[in-house]
Amino acid sequence: MGAVDRLARAAVLVAARRWPDDLAGVMRDEWLAELAVIGEPWRKLAFAGSLAVSPGVDEPSWRERAENAGRLAAVAAGVTLLAAVATNLARATEALAPVMLLLGAAGLALAGRRVRGSVALAGVALFAFLFAGNPVPMMPFMGARDIAPAVAVWTIGMAVALRARRRWVAVAGGLVTLDLAVVAGSAHAAAALGVPAWTAPAWFPLALLPGGTVSFGPHLGDGPAFHASGILLANAAVSAGPFLLCTAFLLASALTGKTGEPARSSGHLTRRVTDAARAAVSRLGVNARRGAAGAVTALATLAVAPALPAAGGDPDVVLRRLLDNSTAFGFGFVEHPVGLGAVALLAALLAMRATDSLTAA
């Protein structure tokens, strides 16, 4: 038996294993018989390969898989943008930033109880957002060599944490993952700035506090001296906030014992609001509801998004706002028409999806 025959036979055996036990043997023998009468090697591989990648009898179709992947990708991108907006709004409150971040985490956790999320796609969305939205000249340690390790550690850590059977283990794993992700993303900055490595465990919690709360590391600057920790924590804060809020979203299923299924609300006020909204949208046709929701959301996004980049162009002002953690970063891409249009399209798709879910509820 040649290499092509062995490869084709292995593909057929893989395809047969995905079928129920009472059909797997029958399908395997039938496919192997068909494979034996095919002469051309390329046809053998095409036949066996098509069986290997085709869904089994009890598996979703490729169209259903594509639709599900598209929904999960849209949710990941939407949650990332929402987490980034909440982080920037919290940082703008300066002294109240920690409280606002906790409120944002609670809000994302509530959303996570009703919407299914994907850790891998959330990691991709976070990397794309941080890489595209934080120009390196403004944030000197926000290049790929800083973002990639942070996102990789966060994605792997969250995937492991969400597999935990106990809720407290999942939460503890998420918190440890947050700390390790910030350390991985700040290691380059710490080495370049001369920040002591023993301070690493404190970088994540300090990045959530107003700048200047704690200072360490060598003094920098020709004018009023500041510590290297100011730059380190300012860079860490850009990713620490979105990481925290996305973690709350993904951990919500573990906290509630759900696996992505919509949670039933027991609050009387929540039911009243939901019923009122459902009654209002029921007066419109399905397509009209979806179109109106998408159009209104897209227009609102086009109006609001350009106001998000608040870094400014004056280096002295930027540095001062970096050091007190009050400046907003992450939305540099919306200054370009293509980026702004992509965000508006994403917001419209999410609004249309939410309208469908509300109608079906």
Rank of each mutant, 00 (worst) to 15 (best):
L340C: 03
P337G: 02
M139P: 03
L193Y: 07
A200M: 02
F204A: 12
G56Q: 05
P98L: 09
V4Y: 01
A240E: 04
T355Y: 07
P196E: 03
G217A: 07
P60H: 01
P196T: 03
N88H: 02
F249R: 00
P224F: 13
A148D: 03
A310W: 09
S54A: 15
V214E: 01
L308P: 06
S265G: 13
R71A: 14
G157V: 10
A66S: 13
L232N: 01
E94P: 01
V317F: 09
R113E: 14
L251N: 00
A263Y: 02
G78C: 11
P137G: 07
W19S: 09
V85S: 04
S215G: 03
A8Q: 08
G174D: 00
E261M: 00
F204M: 11
V169F: 12
E59W: 00
V273P: 07
A197M: 10
L175N: 06
T274I: 12
V115L: 15
K258N: 13
F329M: 15
A237L: 00
G174I: 06
P98F: 00
A164H: 10
A181S: 09
R28H: 11
V75E: 02
V182W: 01
L251F: 08
T327V: 14
L340M: 01
M1I: 13
W154E: 00
R320S: 15
L308G: 07
A293Q: 06
P140Y: 09
S54G: 11
L101I: 13
A288E: 14
G241D: 01
A24G: 11
T155V: 08
A92F: 09
A76G: 05
C246L: 15
A190D: 05
L102R: 14
A144P: 01
L121Y: 03
R116T: 00
L45S: 02
E94A: 14
V57N: 04
G230H: 15
G267N: 07
L349I: 10
A276I: 01
A276C: 10
A240H: 04
A303E: 07
G241F: 12
L81I: 12
V273N: 04
A354V: 04
T87L: 04
A97P: 09
V160K: 11
L250T: 07
W42S: 13
A298G: 05
A307E: 05
A111N: 01
G70A: 13
G285E: 06
W168P: 03
R145F: 08
T259Y: 11
L51W: 10
P41S: 00
V26N: 04
R91C: 05
N68C: 14
A347H: 04
S229Q: 04
A276W: 15
A170I: 08
G174W: 05
P224W: 14
G332R: 08
G339Y: 06
L245F: 05
G104L: 03
A328T: 00
V26Y: 09
L178R: 13
A328P: 05
